[in-house]
Simulated assay, not measured.
Amino acid sequence: MKKIFIPTLLTLVLPLLFSCSSILSGYRLNENDAAAAVRQLLQLGASESSLAGSFSKDAIMTTIFPEPVKKVLTTLNTLGLTSEVDRFTTTLSMAAEKTAAASVPVFTRSINNMKFNDAMRIIKSGGTSATDYLRTSAGDSLRRSITPIMQAALDEYKLNAQWEQLIKPVKGIAGNRLNLDMANLMAGLVSEAMFRKMAEKEIEVRNNASARTTTLLQKVFSRNWS
């Protein structure tokens, strides 16, 4: 009975295996699949963006203070303001992380609404070309959309009052070089951090088969189309 069963099973299974292999080997990339795969790739990167610890003191200081003002603050630190600066940047980092988490739906909506001039080119170009396309086509609008989320986090952590206290000693020195729109500045920092994480995920999907979690990603990114 066993001798009869095994050949019969192979007779049924082998044609299916060869059929699946034939379908995959005969697949031809098209513009619709390319556009859908790029959207899936970017959505995956946005949804998995864990930015805990991404907003260091140095990153925050570089974002909100121009170089001349940073030098003044360094001098003020020697006068006993180190703890105030550290407390402010630590709290601002927490607000940035919260803003990044709340911004995932904003990125997802933008990705869903993306229009492509040449999705095939994005697939074939490799690297971080999908992320770069999103940054170029929607970076400014995404930053503007994130700004009110950032402002809400600033209000929640009462950072505006801390900000005013912190910059009081340097206002006279900084003059109009100090940009007081902290919500907009920090929204830019958050959006760039999101893009970096998405770029990392894009490289992973392009280079690592286990990162291709859908049939479409497997079909489109399992071979070199260039």
Rank of each mutant, 00 (worst) to 15 (best):
N112T: 10
M182F: 04
L185D: 08
N160C: 01
I23K: 06
I203A: 00
S54C: 13
S129D: 01
I23F: 10
K219A: 10
L73R: 13
F116L: 02
N184G: 13
Y27E: 03
M186Q: 07
E48Y: 03
R109E: 11
M198W: 08
A52V: 08
A34L: 04
A100M: 01
A100T: 09
L178R: 11
L44C: 00
T74E: 08
T131P: 00
V69G: 02
T215N: 10
S137V: 11
S103I: 02
L154Q: 05
V85M: 08
S191A: 14
K2Q: 07
R39Y: 05
N77G: 15
L180A: 09
A102G: 00
Q40D: 10
F221Y: 11
T90P: 03
A102I: 11
D86A: 12
A46C: 08
P68G: 13
T82C: 04
V85N: 00
N113S: 15
G26L: 03
A52T: 13
L41W: 06
A46H: 02
I4S: 15
Y133C: 00
I4C: 09
K201C: 06
R28W: 04
T82Y: 04
S47C: 07
V69S: 02
S129H: 04
D132L: 06
A36Q: 15
M150Y: 10
I173F: 15
A130W: 04
T75G: 14
I173R: 12
A161P: 04
D58Q: 13
N207S: 10
M182L: 14
G26Y: 07
A119C: 11
A199C: 07
S125T: 10
T90M: 11
F88T: 02
A96K: 06
R223N: 13
K98F: 01
G80L: 04
S145D: 14
I122H: 06
K219W: 08
L14G: 03
K115Q: 12
L73M: 12
K98I: 08
G188F: 14
G53E: 12
R143H: 03
A153V: 10
P148V: 13
N224C: 00
K2G: 15
Q162G: 15
D155E: 09
I4T: 14
A209F: 05
I149F: 07
G139K: 06
Q162M: 12
L216A: 09
F116C: 11
K124P: 11
M114K: 05
F65N: 06
E67M: 14
S210T: 12
R177A: 15
L42F: 02
A193P: 06
F107T: 02
T147P: 09
Q40M: 07
I173D: 05
K57D: 15
L166P: 03
G175N: 03
T213V: 09
I60N: 03
E156P: 04
P105E: 02
T91A: 15
Y133S: 05
L12H: 10
D155P: 10
S129P: 01
P105V: 01
G126P: 12
M120W: 05
T89G: 07
S22I: 03
G26E: 01
N207H: 07
S25G: 11
T108S: 08
K71F: 07
A100P: 15
N160L: 09
K115G: 05
E202T: 04
A138Y: 12
N176Q: 13
R39W: 11
S21Y: 13
T75N: 11
N32E: 10
K219L: 15
N32R: 14
N30P: 14
E48M: 10
Q40V: 05
T91R: 15
A52F: 12
S49N: 13
L24Y: 08
G45M: 07
